[in-house]
Design a protein around this nucleic acid. Sequence first.
DNA 1: CTGTTAGCGCATTCAG
DNA 2: CTGAATGCGCTAACAG
Lengths: 345, 345
Amino acid sequence: MRPTVHDIAAEAGVSLATVDRVLNKRPGVRAVTRDKVERAIETLGYVRDVTAANLAKGRTYPLVFIVPAGDNSFMRGLEVEVRAAIARSAAERTEITILSVPAFNPQALAEALEEAHRRQPAGVAVVAIDAPEVTAAVKRLRDDGIAVVTLVSDLPGSARDHFAGIDNIAAGRTAGNLIGRFLGSREGPVAVLAGSMLVRDHRDRLEGFHAVMRDHFGARALLPVIEGQDDAVLAQKLVAALLAAQPDLAGIYSLGAGNRGLVAALETAGKAETICVVAHELTPYSRAALVSGTIDVILNQDAGHEVRSAIRVLKAKADGLPVIAAQERIRIDIFLKDNLPNGQA
Amino acid sequence: MRPTVHDIAAEAGVSLATVDRVLNKRPGVRAVTRDKVERAIETLGYVRDVTAANLAKGRTYPLVFIVPAGDNSFMRGLEVEVRAAIARSAAERTEITILSVPAFNPQALAEALEEAHRRQPAGVAVVAIDAPEVTAAVKRLRDDGIAVVTLVSDLPGSARDHFAGIDNIAAGRTAGNLIGRFLGSREGPVAVLAGSMLVRDHRDRLEGFHAVMRDHFGARALLPVIEGQDDAVLAQKLVAALLAAQPDLAGIYSLGAGNRGLVAALETAGKAETICVVAHELTPYSRAALVSGTIDVILNQDAGHEVRSAIRVLKAKADGLPVIAAQERIRIDIFLKDNLPNGQA
DNA sequence: CTGTTAGCGCATTCAG
DNA sequence: CTGAATGCGCTAACAG
């Protein structure tokens, strides 16, 4: 049987309360006494039973998640994962509230952060927009002792505690490498379809993509970026125009959402098979297009992992505990039709 | 505050003990009483606090992991993950023993399973070899009420409760698709380096690979499989001979271990840059070769995920609880140099 | 500064 | 068949 607080109390010749005080680094213990207890902890090899501690504390963590509204499938999937986390609230001692905000609207996001602030939660997770008013709102939260984690899209240079998302520069590089190699010696330019340069993740992906294309596939022409606002209808219109204007288009990197529109345009133009397409995020639509062959590769971030990581980090920060960075790293998944998971999405 | 056993006892007008009896489906409760309690549970929306239950029970799960010995980096990484799980034993209420056995030796493995049996654990996780004596030993464990999970390599047709590993046919297909597309119109045959056809995972990968090459890249010549016994020295010798015999070799699919030997042979022959190589398992060696460009793609299974999944399943089976299959699915990771995680491995 | 005591939510004797 | 009482390992008033 592993040692308990009783054992260390006996070993040190003190009471339970004193042991608890040094265990939780609370004041009101003489240095000598503290030493005795710490020695006992050491010699007995005591490790605290966290679940028992939580049971006794009865502590819960009120958290707020701020997620963009709209019909972006990835964001809807993200919200599903947050709701799944809500379903686990009891076991995880969390109380999660979801705040929905219009997409690509810095003003609205800043207001949502204020709303979150008013609720005085232990932490806030937010899909960020890279804008000064957002950075300012995050700072106010932090100044008030509320932990902040950016989710999916980061806010570098802000006071946020942590970013729960993928390395988007690496994602862009991966896309470039795959498109470059898949096209091989085949002729024709490559286009990029983005959502908006207002969000950091899209900017980073573009940067990584351009870097690889420049360094390793310099002969390949790159067309100017198209911004589809992550909107399926707009994306379809823009891509249709692109296909008409560039009959010899060889590849498309779709680094944002709106893949439904992209796929529709490709299929309408009868180009589904011939153009090499690398897209982001595994959703029911993109999945179908991968299986049918319209999309060749999907780069994905696991929204479930991101949400669970954000919660772990938020709880740790709220308790002033350190975070094991390596454990919280979100991986860039690569899916071909052959390694598609059978499950959800 | 969420309802507790006390609340439901009060609501149903019975004692705690009775509530506990129906909660844990123990006998000795009249149907009427049981109904009353179940109704109370329903109306109050009670959900049991598992951590408190575990605390009260003080139950632990003795588990045995059987892992092949030798200098196979992947297996050593797997063992590291099992040791990490041992470090978490306190929190997870497990007591894990590791048994080491010579690789590719069905006889030795069957004996290790007997040794595990003697310890009377709640469950056994085993990297299987597809052989009758192993299947028989697994059956004896199961007949004795001990849960069995195969790890990494499965034992289809046996009595094992679950397989914690990837879909190796899909992995082989993925490898075929990537090699086929990367080579494009380039001429030259493709070779396959395996460990041993004695283990199911290698056989499955080969099957998937052949299927895709046949169906989608029919023009590409496939050389007979080379078996390197997952041994670096042997693999190096065999690959060196292959390179000498096939000067126009275009690609290699390394579906087992022994990548150190493969890489050494390629670099010695000065073919590191020119031949397209797809290999399995991210280890320090394969990682370095991916970064240097000798290996083009690494397919990986996350040993940490596999170990954690095996433990979850073993505990659930030991308690007679169902397993959520989708949640325990192990994904096939694809790594290019661009999306390599910075962490371990 | 230190000790006593009473729970947290649940499981389990042991009586009745 | 059912209930009262006790304890799991830890925390938190409240006394001293």
